[in-house]
Design a protein around this nucleic acid. Sequence first.
DNA 1: CTATGGCACGGATT
DNA 2: AATCCGTGCCATAG
Length: 478
Amino acid sequence: MFQTHRHLHTIRPLTTAHLAQTMSLLSLTASELRQQIEAELASNPALELVEERRCPTCHRILPDRSVCPACSRQKNSASDEPIVFVSPKDQDYHEYSGGASSIDDAQEDRYAASVEELPVYVFRQVKPDIDPEDRKIAAHLLSNLNEDGLLAISLMDAARYLHVPISRIEKVQRIIQRADPLGVGSCSTRQALLVQLEVLGETHRIPPLAETIIQEGMSLLSRRQYIELARQLKAPLSQVQEAARFISENLNPFPARSSWGERHQPSHEPAGTGIFYQPDMIISQLNEKPGSPLVVEIIMPLYGTLRVNPLFRQAMQESMDEQKEALREDLDRAALFVKCLQQRNHTIQRLMHKIVTLQRDFILYGEKHLRPITRAFIARELGVHESTISRAVANKAVQMPNGRIVPLSSFFDRSLNVRTVLREIIAQEDSPLSDSQLAEMLSEQGYRVARRTVAKYRAMEGILPANLRTRQANTSAS
DNA sequence: CTATGGCACGGATT
DNA sequence: AATCCGTGCCATAG
């Protein structure tokens, strides 16, 4: 395709450089990648970003940032193969330069909150606002938050367990939701967003469409299909985009996480505090229909296509010999960069295709169905080196169809399925089971783990030891 | 005496 | 080569 390496002795080291650069690009997060690309773009005149995008399947020029709907539908009917493609998402990456003050304050509080346990932190806030006899309700709700800060149990279950009417629980929930982090204790991401919107609306002007979009268009919103959204709501696209921007900038569907629209420090993270990143890939299901194929978007943090500037190439050929060398260097760098980028995307694409095929059940039906797959296995399947997979997986986050953002490495978690079953057993237990009893139960279900390991899993899941667990006695209560 | 958490070791994974 | 993970042994708490 390109003019082949003829007198490119200088290119020699580039073959190794090529490998090195592909590697390093592979391990980059979407936002890190953007920085890298911008740096390259700024420093290399031969590189060019054309503000035009073509549908990856039908190559038509797309008017906006969406995916060509015709093509995905066409693909849909063609097979049940997962669809994997690279998708530009630059609107997700707004810089965070202290705009609205109240929101900054909220951020600071959140850092303070991460020091202590979330349930405790929230409980302290709401305690004065809640009747003493309703505090056990608050305590129960707060002890059943999942890692997103959403309620892991239904209000119905809580009502049954506490023997109080649902309305009373709802009353307590409303108080909790208004504590920091805003929306904590909601039943769903949608509810969390609505609460945040409501509270924010008391002090700020909010776009008129925001509420409607959250109420009715969550699935479209999470896929950023703004044109379709505008069509369904019969509203102008600009207003939809404005509302969507407001939502992604100021609201957070997972109260306990600092996710959307927030900066992400690539360097050092106090890893372990459960802080998650912006997704690097988004997995969704076409039309939400059970049988339909999964769609994987690999996020390219730029809108447009990166290529070697043809004018530059031409200019080089026409220039004098001395200049030619200098220009050629830039041109080679640019070509190399583009190629590396393509290779990166290609590798990730193949990787995701494999992952989605192997872990379909996990993606759709939850953590219990995770297959323990190792990176080495995928590497063998794909015919690449293990370290390639390792790099591609490291530090990346993926958004699941249900909206959760999880690290890509969780697809390779050897014990997540066991831990999930463990959690289920404990949730269903009548009286607290000891670790050895739990180990027994697990092996009955086919998971053979040692007693000591059960203890560790428990710790990982933040479940208290048996003697400290409250009895789940469902019948005789005083 | 039973149930747990800490430490550390060996094998697997990255 | 470095790291992670499951597990056994032992000390400690109840």
